[in-house]
Design a protein around this nucleic acid. Structure first.
Ligand SMILES: Nc1ncnc2c1ncn2[C@@H]1O[C@H](COP(=O)(O)OP(=O)(O)O)[C@@H](O)[C@H]1O
Length: 415
DNA sequence: TGTCCACTGGAAACGGTGGACG
DNA sequence: CGTCCACCGTTTCCAGTGGACA
């Protein structure tokens, strides 16, 4: 008997088809999005006849299927026009590339396939824009450009690029482009200038969150492809659906929950997935997500976070200025370079947006107006942060301080 | 009632990095 | 090479601002 046999036996594959549950998988069927699909299809159908469709703004919370629906429509559009004679579908995720050059680069190189590709950096924006236009016009067709997570660009770079893109049609002679903006920020349009607001939002499609019942259907559909259904215990799917429905109707979360539950069951060597696994999965996902975020923040952010933790442990009120003075000490001990107040304040806002802390502006009357900060992570994660090797000098320093203190006390006793 | 604190939030500018191009 | 340009993280500047206290 081989030494792996027992372990192999134990690790019975519960998941038959793993990639079905991965977030990158695009399903062939998207239940409960029939109306949205029909709407969008109706709007973009003119592109099959080389006419420019209206621009569309798609809004809806995360995990409501926006990306899945648009990719699905893109696939189907290609089926209608396999040689892309009349229209091409271009998808850009602005969360991954969020600077103007990157976006134009990305769009252009889905169009330009010969040796004249645009380099990933180096050109002036004007030059990129001009070559892009000439290539687009040469193709003599309609380009449907999906900008996913479009709010990212605006946040970081303002709306210049939207102006670029929406005025391009006035210069193009043969081809046309049509923009589909995707955002999970319902207030996105309020942040745009009126001109661009009306151009980008010629048509609007709203994706509402799924309810528990709809999530159950979605999960069932996937589960059938990914597992032998009998290994999924009673109530597992409804439990996953209920949890995710309560917390913003996010299908991605629901699917993650199901996948991680199965993975946990598998690792435990259990023969079926039960509700207990779902509960365990929920915790694991939550913790993993936070740890992943903390792992990827910058050194400076970590020092700021560490300073907040120190104040938290001293049970002091945590304010921006408060954090800054501890931060200053820590930078000194760690011989990290010291940032100015403003930047640290901005880093605090970033930590807030990441959900690691909770910071809201509060007025303390005569004592000024500043952020009051609360830590939003549990003890284990606090320990995880403190254990970071970056802080080793700090641990030494603090314990040295403590031992000297202790020594002094001892000495005092002796005297 | 007004003052004034300790910042906030927005914008512009800066310096360093790195690619293209002539 | 030097020049131009974009990007990023950061600094500098500045006009607000909610509310305890005089
Ligand atoms: N109606 C649906 N049917 C099946 N799977 C869905 C459905 N809606 C969303 N999903 C799945 O949920 C996950 C998240 O969806 P996504 O389109 O990325 O959401 P969004 O872009 O709105 O944040 C994806 O894995 C997607 O396949």
């Amino acid at each position: 008997m081989g030494i792996f046999d027992e372990s192999k036996q134990k690790r019975k594959q519960l998941i038959k088809n793993r990639n079905i549950l991965q977030t990158t998988y695009i399903p062939d069927q998207l239940p409960h999005r029939e109306n949205e699909i029909r709407n969008i299809v109706e709007i973009i159908t003119p592109s099959l006849y080389k006419n420019k469709p209206s621009n569309i703004l798609v809004t809806g919370k995360t995990g409501t299927g926006k990306t899945a629906v648009l990719n699905y429509i893109g696939k189907e559009l290609k089926k209608e026009d396999p040689k892309e004679e009349n229209c091409s579908f271009i998808y850009v995720n602005c969360e991954i590339v969020d600077n103007p050059y990157g976006i134009l680069f990305n769009i252009s190189n889905q169009i330009i396939i010969d040796q004249n590709r645009i380099p990933p950096t180096g050109w002036s924006l004007d030059r990129v824009y001009d070559t892009m236009i000439s290539y687009i016009d040469k193709e003599n067709k309609v380009f449907i450009i999906v900008l996913d997570e479009i709010d990212r660009i605006l946040q970081k770079n303002g709306d210049d690029i939207f102006y670029f893109l929406t005025t391009m049609n006035e210069i193009l002679k043969q081809s046309k482009i049509s923009i589909i903006g995707v955002t999970n920020n319902a207030k996105f349009t309020e942040l745009l200038s009126t001109k661009i607001k009306s151009r980008l939002g010629e048509e609007k499609v709203i994706f509402s969150p799924y309810n528990a019942e709809q999530l159950q259907n979605i999960l069932r559909g996937r589960a059938e492809l990914a597992f032998d259904t009998e290994i999924i215990g009673d109530g597992v799917i409804s439990r996953c659906a209920a949890i995710s429905a309560q917390d913003s109707g996010d299908a991605r979360k629901a699917l993650d929950l199901l996948r991680v539950s199965a993975e946990i069951a598998e690792r435990n060597g259990d023969t079926s997935v039960t509700e207990a696994h779902v509960i365990a999965a929920r915790n694991k996902i939550e913790i993993d997500a936070v740890i992943e975020v903390i792992r990827t923040i910058t050194v400076q952010s970590k020092i700021v976070l560490r300073s907040i933790i120190e104040l938290h442990e001293k049970k002091d009120i945590i304010t921006t200025g408060n954090v800054y003075s501890i931060y200053k000490e820590n930078c000194d001990i760690l011989s990290a370079n010291l940032l100015k107040e403003k930047r640290v304040a901005d880093l605090i806002s970033e930590l807030d947006m990441l959900g690691i802390i909770h910071a809201r502006v509060k007025s303390f009357g005569r004592n000024g107006r500043t952020r009051e900060i609360e830590l939003n992570i549990n003890k284990d994660i606090i320990d995880f942060v403190k254990k970071d090797e970056l802080f080793e000098p700090l641990q030494k320093h603090k314990s040295k301080k403590q031992t000297t203190l202790w020594k002094e006390q001892e000495d005092n006793k002796k005297v």
